[in-house]
Design a binder for these strands. Sequence first.
DNA 1: GTCTATACATCGATAGAC
DNA 2: GTCTATCGATGTATAGAC
Lengths: 201, 201
Amino acid sequence: MSVESTVDSSQRGRQILLLAAEQFAEKGAKATTMRQIAAAAGMKAGSIYHHFSSKDEMLVAILGDYLDDLNQSYREVLAAGHGAADLIRTLIITSLHASARHPHAAEVYQAEQPYLRRQPEVFERIIRAGRESQAVWSEAIQIGYDDGTFRQEIPVETFHRLLRDALWLSVRWYQPTEAYPLDAFAGDIASVFLDGLLPRA
Amino acid sequence: MSVESTVDSSQRGRQILLLAAEQFAEKGAKATTMRQIAAAAGMKAGSIYHHFSSKDEMLVAILGDYLDDLNQSYREVLAAGHGAADLIRTLIITSLHASARHPHAAEVYQAEQPYLRRQPEVFERIIRAGRESQAVWSEAIQIGYDDGTFRQEIPVETFHRLLRDALWLSVRWYQPTEAYPLDAFAGDIASVFLDGLLPRA
DNA sequence: GTCTATACATCGATAGAC
DNA sequence: GTCTATCGATGTATAGAC
């Protein structure tokens, strides 16, 4: 009834991917062995290969799902037609929600950047999807520079990278709580980058 | 004339460490093999062990030198007794200068964080030095919150982490040029985090 | 101080029984 | 769909010649 594919999208397959993502995030993809992933899933190393044909393929599945979801969400935000400042605010919230929907994927994506780029053929799909999401940020920030919403003194590239890095890395330490929910955190990030920490006189 | 030690601090030893740091930064410590480090230094893998007793020890030497230098610089800044905003600005510049003095070390330190923490005994010295530098930032930021220089709405921890991550990661992409020197870049980082991207009305 | 040679461990992936 | 068993590759580190 189901179509054969290199990628296993069954429930068991998804469960294995989640466990793999958790370990990739914790100690890196290279340092995580197939035996460890198998053990977490309650099976032996050889059995993993019934679901996925290689470790790299597991990485592609984890990151591809996440980036596709992220880019889809980004497109919807762009279509809503916010002003520059609101656009930045909304993209921050959207990014954090996407990260929350794909536990550990954002963390893995940023940590494995060097590894991905060393095998452009294997990870072509991931690299392209990553570029697409970067382009959205570039576009959003440029809008604010062009229409005078943002200060011209700060180079576009500098602001872009600072915000991107702080946002990406926040998935490493921030965990939503009742006292400090995701939307409040997103608002604080936006406030720091748009308003600064000094009070507005 | 020279005292025997586990760590080789000779010229040749330092040269090997620089080449190792470059590769650690590029593809990760675990993914860099002793054979590759040796090849870059124009020798065979076995010969490295005349200078260092293990790869982990090389990592300790690279990161220890960097963090000791950084903390020493931080202490001098604290002793100068700046106001909160100037203190943040100065710490940013100081951090970037320290990173420039130790090519790739900051990059390696941030990328290998999970690896370091998985072997607390081996990397104890590094972990402690890292905590010391974090404490300096916490103290500096807290001063501004306490004396009312900074806005109270943003949680201290949030601001601290955002600034820390953006600053650490900037070593991955920023390279000083004549058109955009280190001090100008440091000023822009400080300006984004203190003043924000929106113009002050 | 660098070499060759190699011991020893571990990993990714495969083959075939159940 | 999972197991056992194992191959072949590769990595760290050591031993001893030069």
